[in-house]
Amino acid sequence: MSWDQVSDVIAAVCFVAAAFFAAVAAIGVIRFPDLLTRMHAATKPQTVGLLFALVGLGLRLGEPSAIGILVLVGLFQCATAPIASHMMSRAAFRAGQVRQDLLVADELSPVMDREEPRGAP
């Protein structure tokens, strides 16, 4: 088998994995019970799925300039996705959109009223 065929097979496996994780993310949004657990399902497997899709694309295209863009897409996704999910879950927690009965332990609510001073350093 030549290198072209090997990379095509690996790319195909990556695409299937990407599709699988994206599908799992969608199913998780339906099945999980409350907002924060749904956030886990919606944001994380999707990021992993995107990374798989990028690796597959890079192997399939094989052009250095295209791989440069793909690496940038991956980097920016990894830099921005956590901020978005953090801001949403922070707002959700503060708005009381958490099912307390589901939590095994909650170490934040008791210290929630002890806010720290705001602003830049």
Binding site: R31, H40, V48
Partner: peptide, 25 residues
């Protein structure tokens, strides 16, 4: 860790188990 954890979350989703979440300090 990212790969292992995505497989874990996926099995949770597919098995219809209700997860036991917590807020940890």
């Amino acid at each position: 860790q990212m790969l292992v954890a995505s497989v874990e979350v996926s099995t949770h989703v597919l098995r219809r188990e209700h997860p036991k979440p917590a807020v940890v300090e």
